[in-house]
Design a protein around this nucleic acid. Structure first.
Length: 917
RNA sequence: AGGCGAUUAGCUCAGUGGGAGAGCACUUCCCUGACACGGAAGGGGUCGGCGGUUCGAAUCCGCCAUCGCCUACCA
């Protein structure tokens, strides 16, 4: 362990050392058999294919702050990591690499393909894991899990069978969302609605046995080929005469009926008539069911038109077919008009493909409503709290209108559905153990369902499957329910809501007590980060630095905005600076517009902290061991008491803020205390004492205060900036045992800290006097090198008098004053002097050739104007009888005191002006 | 269409009932023995607009404007 600290803070070195030290000590392994209360967070498992992005960085930072705080506060803290197999994403990645080898999935076959995915996972799957370690996340890697590992697969199977047995899983042939690129079904949630510019085509359908035509409008003219009816409202007078008739479907030789349906047709919209395509539209599907219409599927799985349509459209992609259909309609006189129209189109979240509503046979669904009811109750009665609270209404709204969850996916990478279809009797057998024969007829002609389960089905079990469920393990008993679930609001429904449903179903207890939803990280202009926009900020670029020349040319597009803002690249800021930035940005309920320059600002803060510890080390370097509060030290000065009091106040703010997920408030309080109170004032005030060999008691008290404050400060900061604090704490030799680590030290408690309000008030007043003198120096342009031969500090207030007398040597030092004279306001003072008043203390600085009288008159007039404004303000306020009557007594008293002070200031300044002539 | 949120210093943001704050940027001065990733001092805001409640409003309520986000089956 090095005692000597480098002159400058180098995050890269510090963080490497910190990681090594924690890893060697196995510092974050939770002990299930300890007698401390358990406190658990499960890490939202990132995709194995993923790379660390700002959302992860933010989530990891906030979770690590919570878990480190609890670990240091006497809890058995477990933060459990793992990754998610990410069905579609991973399968796509591996298929892409196969294509590069000239292979494809079908030729490889299912088993060989799955083997390839596992190979890929073993090779690349730990990228995100090592990136998370770089963030300083204090995860218990000994408990790392993967959604497809053996234990979790058993949990998935068990829950599937239970749900099936309880009638909560069923099969149905409904319209589902088909992703023609991913070649799989998607749940409603995985489809993103996107508004685009499109058209509305008005098409005339000729009525059979009549010269009449009925005009329908559509955004998708090609689906006309699958129409099986035209619907009108039964009460629509325009169409009464057509009830019961049929139309000849253009471009086909089919005739379809005109039906009446009050739900399908809206009289007020367009022509009031609507074409019905049951096989390719969710509404039309329902209309079809209500009216027992046939359903004609016109698309194949690739999104191309199939043999149900006339020959000239077969095999065309739907987009191409659309153009041809429109052309043909126009040529044949069926096209009435075209309007521009905004429409929402569903796109696959994973592949970006336009999703087609279609039927592809029986799919597996979870009946969501029975599971949702207890999940709603858990939030409503407060067993689960959602932070920020505003998300609760969103949660309730979704849960109360929840729809069945389609869980089958036509993929190979995932948990294969544990269901066997019987060729003999057609029944399905769902079983915990792979069956040999059909449970219904005993036939051995059974084969397992080809589909796998939605990845979110396995992640819904994460809070208990990772702890060993369905086995009754020690971990499960000890660490479930978990405490906090921290994630982005964008997966509130995908994941959080489903975990609540599954946790209550499987464990009969909530999976976590608090849901904390963090904001989205955007670029500095508030734009969502995206590769195509080129405004992505990679957390690792901030941590390790980035130089344009070292960027892969292909990555330049992704990071073009960063390269524009920082043409010379960015220096390594370190994980600590990034974490502190994110913590300070993380005000509840607001998006984060990340400005890289702010990271640099917080890195500067850490450099400041580093140097403060270097300073301390020079003066207390010989001391080792714990640094208890020096409350009873005989030499304890008011300055010492002041900083100890401010420490206690800061600690209280941190405690309250962390308990309430107000990370920004806690971090900001520590920043202000460390820099603007400890470094700016205390260290400067302590310097003369530390150098003073003649007052050993005072010197010792200052040394002990310095150590204690830094010890507490490093502890308080540790959850935010773990690396640098661990390093500095080591350098100050504050450990009880040589192998003790800061991450295991005891977090400070404000309740056990002493406060000295009177001494603190005096020190605060002294600092105000110092600032006032410096202001005169600066505004009167007295060169910094010149000392002030004489300064008078005059006050009628005994406490203020005590403060300036007590602080005399410090005021002298900090303002370069050679002589301080104190006294009552009656004291005679020279005519040629600069004057200022602060907190009832009149500051008089004789010119001695240093100050220009004209400029000083100017300066005093400005200060006088402010005093006069103040007097007017408070006179007006206190002159209002209703204010004096109704405002709280302390507010009135305080304003009276302020008025009195302002009047005194005025008379002092007027007198000073008079003396100047 | 509905719901939620935002609008505070040039930029990015804190601040929820008692005289407007931070970081960065800006101006002046200073390489003083922890730190120039620094120090000292300073300039800059009718807190989106209009009404209301209150002794008192950036803060609570209503309306409007602008911008986001999320839900929704409008052909």
């Amino acid at each position: 362990m090095s005692t000597e600290l480098d002159a400058g803070y180098d995050p890269t070195r510090v963080e490497q050392r910190g990681s090594d030290r924690w890893e060697r000590a196995d510092a974050f392994r939770a002990n299930a058999s300890s007698d401390r209360p358990a406190w658990t967070i499960v890490l939202p498992p990132p995709n194995v294919t993923g790379a660390l992005h700002m959302g992860h960085a933010l989530g990891n930072t906030l979770q690590d702050i919570l878990i480190r705080h609890r670990r240091m506060s006497g809890y058995e803290a477990l933060w459990l990591p793992g990754t998610d197999h990410a069905g579609i994403a991973t399968q796509m990645v591996v298929e892409r690499s196969l294509r590069e080898e000239g292979l494809d999935r079908p030729t490889l076959g299912r088993d060989a393909f799955v083997d390839r995915v596992w190979e890929w996972k073993d090779q690349y799957g730990d990228r995100i894991v090592s990136q998370m370690k770089r963030m300083g996340s204090s995860l218990d890697w000994s408990r790392e899990r993967f959604t497809l590992d053996e234990g979790l697969s058993r949990a998935v199977r068990e829950i599937f069978v239970r749900l099936w047995e309880d009638g909560l899983i069923h099969r149905d042939d409904r319209l589902v969302n088909w992703d023609p690129v991913g070649q799989t079904v998607l749940s409603d949630l995985e489809v993103e609605q996107e508004e685009e510019d499109g058209h509305l085509w008005h098409i005339a359908y000729p009525v059979v046995d009549s010269d009449d035509r009925i005009v329908v409008a559509t955004t998708r003219p090609e689906t006309l080929l699958g129409d099986t009816a035209v619907a009108v409202h039964p009460d629509d007078p325009r169409y009464t005469h057509l009830h019961g008739k049929s139309v000849a479907l253009p471009l086909t030789d089919r005739t379809i009926p005109i039906i009446t349906d009050p739900e399908a047709a809206d009289m007020a919209f367009g022509s009031g008539a609507v074409k019905i395509t049951p096989a390719h539209d969710f509404n039309d599907f329902e209309t079809g069911r209500r009216n027992t219409l046939p359903s004609i599927t016109i698309l194949d799985l690739d999104g191309c038109l199939n043999d149900e349509v006339p020959e000239r459209y077969r095999g065309l992609d739907r987009e191409v077919a659309r153009d041809r259909v429109v052309e043909d309609l126009e040529a044949q006189g069926f096209l009435v008009r075209i309007e521009a129209h905004r429409l929402a189109r569903g796109r696959s979240q994973r592949t970006g493909a336009i999703v087609e509503p279609m039927s592809i046979g029986k799919q597996w669904f979870v009946r969501a409503q029975p599971l949702a009811e207890p999940a709603i109750a858990a939030v409503r009665d407060g067993r689960i709290r959602i932070v920020p609270e505003q998300w609760e209404s969103t949660y309730f709204h979704w849960m109360e209108n929840i729809r069945d969850w389609c869980i089958s996916r036509q993929l190979w990478w995932g948990h294969r559905i544990p269901a066997w279809n019987c060729e003999s009797c057609g029944e399905v057998t769902v079983a915990r153990q792979d069956p040999d024969r059909c449970a219904h007829c005993g036939s051995d002609a059974i084969h397992q369902e080809e589909d796998v389960l939605d990845t979110w089905f396995s992640s819904a079990l994460w809070p208990f499957s990772t702890l060993g469920w369905p086995e009754d393990t020690e971990d499960l008993r000890r660490f479930y329910p978990t405490e906090v679930l921290e994630t982005g609001f964008d997966i509130l429904f995908f994941w959080v809501a489903r975990m609540i449903m599954m946790g209550l179903y499987a464990m009969d207890d909530v999976p976590f007590r608090t849901v904390f939803l963090h904001a989205m990280v955007r670029d500095r202009h508030g734009q969502k980060m995206s590769k195509s926009v080129g405004n992505v900020i990679d957390p690792l670029h901030l941590i390790d630095g980035v130089h344009p020349d070292r960027l892969d040319p292909r990555e330049r597009d992704t990071y073009q905005q960063l390269l524009r803002d920082f043409p010379d690249g960015i220096e390594a800021q370190g994980a600590d600076a990034l974490r502190l930035t994110l913590a300070i940005y993380a005000a509840a309920g607001r998006d984060i517009k990340l400005d890289v320059r702010r990271v640099e600002g917080y890195r500067a803060f850490l450099n400041k902290l580093w140097n403060a510890v270097r300073f301390a080390n020079m003066h207390v370097g010989e001391m080792t061991g714990p640094a208890p509060a020096p409350s009873g030290e005989p030499g304890l000065s008011s300055n010492d008491k002041w900083i100890l009091t401010r420490l206690a106040d800061t600690c209280a703010v941190v405690e309250r803020a962390l308990g309430d997920f107000r990370f920004n408030e806690a971090a900001q309080a520590l920043y202000d205390f460390a820099w603007h109170e400890f470094c700016d004032w205390y260290v400067e005030l302590a310097k003369p004492v530390l150098h003073d060999e003649d007052s050993p008691e005072a010197r010792r008290a200052a040394q002990l205060t310095l150590r204690h404050v830094l010890d507490s400060l490093l502890k308080l900061l540790h959850p935010f900036t773990p690396f640098i604090t661990e390093e500095l704490w080591g350098a100050l030799h504050l450990a009880e045992r040589p192998d003790e680590l800061l991450c295991h030290a005891r977090f400070p408690e404000s309740s056990s800290m002493s406060r000295w309000p009177e001494e603190s008030a005096r020190v605060t007043l002294m600092t105000e006097v110092v600032t006032a003198i410096r202001r005169i120096r600066s505004e009167s342009q007295i060169p910094p090198g010149r000392s002030l031969p004489r300064v008078l500090l005059l006050t009628a207030n005994p406490e203020a008098a005590l403060a300036v007398r007590e602080g005399e040597r410090f005021i002298k030092r900090l303002t370069r004053a050679e002589l301080i004279e104190t006294g009552p306001p009656e004291t005679s003072r020279p005519d040629d002097a600069a004057t200022s008043v602060v907190s009832g203390v009149e500051i008089v600085i004789p010119f001695e050739g240093l100050v220009d009288p004209g400029a000083e008159r100017e300066r005093i007039r400005k200060e006088l104007d402010r005093a006069i404004e103040d007097i007017a303000f408070f006179e007006r306020k206190l002159g209002n009888p209703r204010f004096v009557e109704r405002a709280p007594a302390d507010v009135v008293a305080r304003d009276r005191a302020r008025l009195e002070a302002a009047r005194q200031t005025r008379s002092s300044l007027e007198a000073a002006l008079a003396r100047l002539g």
